[in-house]
Design a protein around this nucleic acid. Structure first.
Lengths: 139, 139
DNA sequence: AGGTTACATCACAAACATGTGATGTTCTGA
DNA sequence: TCAGAACATCACATGTTTGTGATGTAACCT
């Protein structure tokens, strides 16, 4: 459902959320603890930094920190910089035009799936995830 | 959410469902009408044939037919031969162990998404799709 | 200051998905 | 029977994702 790279971004963000407020974490440690190749994780973290989701600090005491409290960061924000941009609206059956007004046979059902995925990503914060389960509706 | 190849398989299956009972359709025509590269579609159709979802016939009057009535073919069946097999159970946060008993912080919410996708694919037939919309619950 | 430690960046390789072209093989129908 | 039409198969090209290695650059600490 999500690309590997997107998952890696989530893992890093959750990792940083867990130790929010306790200083910067080194890319190498994040990579090791999340089971992601170190150099690859570096690039992912760099992209997250470029997107303003994490802050990087160089030098001896450097590393990465979340740019905002976990409560304010949604999964969609974390994953956003790695999304293909396109294709989210593509018709499942390949029709050039496929919309609510002019739907293909699978449009309505497929739309439910897409929207529940989006609302999961848009409605869940890093804080929600590190606190454990519990739905939006329950608070 | 689905790979391109999986979408191509769906397009072909829906195409064949639409003309179920009227004989075989040629790969070239299916490819043209669904907007898929002809040679690529050939390979997709061949895999569908190997999986027993469609039947191929050679020779002058040859082509592809569905191996069963549209009402009996679920989208999951069509897409199945192209699924990676793995990764469907992978933890979103990369934990080696992640299950209902021992869940990560995102497990429950993520599970809802995965299951709604699966129930869409497992609960929708080709007949449902060509008839237009209408949910399982409504019949 | 200068060395060490971190991130930043570049170059490239491997794996996979996707797409193209050519050729073989089987069946039909005249 | 045999030529044509269709699928079957092989070989390969392209593009993207994922992963690896080496080097550059900035900051800290002694």
């Amino acid at each position: 459902m999500l690309s590997r790279t997107e998952e890696y971004a989530l893992r890093a963000a959750v990792y940083l959320a867990r130790q929010y407020g306790t200083g910067a974490a080194r890319a190498k440690d994040i990579a090791r603890d999340t089971g992601v190749p170190a150099n690859y994780m570096s690039k992912v973290l760099h992209q997250l930094a470029k997107a303003g989701i994490v802050v990087s600090e160089r030098g001896r005491t450097g590393g990465f920190r979340l740019a905002a409290p976990p409560r304010d960061l949604f999964l969609a924000t974390v994953v956003g910089p790695f999304e293909p941009q396109v294709e989210r609206t593509r018709c499942l059956l390949g029709r050039p035009e496929c919309s609510d007004v002019n739907p293909c046979g699978a449009h309505d059902r497929w739309k439910v799936i897409k929207e529940s995925t989006l609302s999961f990503l848009n409605g869940t914060t890093l804080a929600d995830v590190i606190e454990g389960s519990g739905s939006d509706a329950s608070r």
